[in-house]
C-alpha cells in the first residue's frame, strides 16, 4: 500500500502546493495535448519557481528549458500561457523535441495565499 501514498518529494502537484506555502512564486505546467510519439503523456506536470528551480517533467528533458523560461513570464504577469512544441515549428525543433512528436503545454501561475 506504500505506493498509494503521494510522495511529496516527487509529485509536482504536491510540490506546487508546498513551495507556494513556503512563499515561493510558482507556476505549474501541464501537458494537455500530444501528437505522435510524445515522450510524456497528457496530464504530466512540471512545477517551476521564480528562481528557475523545477521538478517533474513534460517531455523527458527535451523542452523543459523553454517551459521554465516561459514560466518566469507566467509568474511575473500572473497570466496562463499556452506553449506548443514539435517538429513543425523551427524554434521548437531547435529546443529539441527530436522524437518527432508534438506537444501542447499549459502553464499557469499558482496564486499566492492571501
Amino acid at each position: 500500500m506504500q505506493q498509494d501514498a503521494i510522495r511529496a518529494d516527487a509529485d509536482p502537484l504536491a510540490l506546487a502546493e508546498s513551495w507556494t506555502r513556503e512563499g515561493r512564486r510558482v507556476a505549474l505546467a501541464t501537458v494537455i495535448e500530444t501528437w505522435g510519439s510524445a515522450p510524456r503523456p497528457v496530464g504530466a506536470h512540471l512545477v517551476i519557481d521564480a528562481e528557475g528551480n523545477f521538478e517533474g517533467s513534460v517531455s523527458g528533458g527535451c523542452v523543459e528549458g523553454a517551459v521554465v523560461a516561459e514560466a518566469a513570464e507566467v509568474i511575473e504577469t500572473g497570466r496562463p500561457a499556452m506553449l506548443e512544441f514539435g517538429v513543425a515549428d523551427e524554434t521548437a525543433w531547435r529546443v529539441g523535441l527530436s522524437c518527432g512528436g508534438r506537444i501542447r503545454v499549459y502553464v499557469e501561475p499558482v496564486a499566492q495565499p492571501a
Binding site: I6, L13, A14, E17, T20, L28, E108
Partner: peptide
C-alpha cells in the same frame, strides 16, 4: 490556480478519493 483548490485536489489524491 488557486492555492486552496490545489490543496483540495492534493488532499483528494492522497486520500484515495
Amino acid at each position: 490556480m488557486d492555492l486552496q483548490l490545489l490543496a483540495r485536489f492534493n488532499a483528494a489524491r492522497s486520500g484515495r478519493k
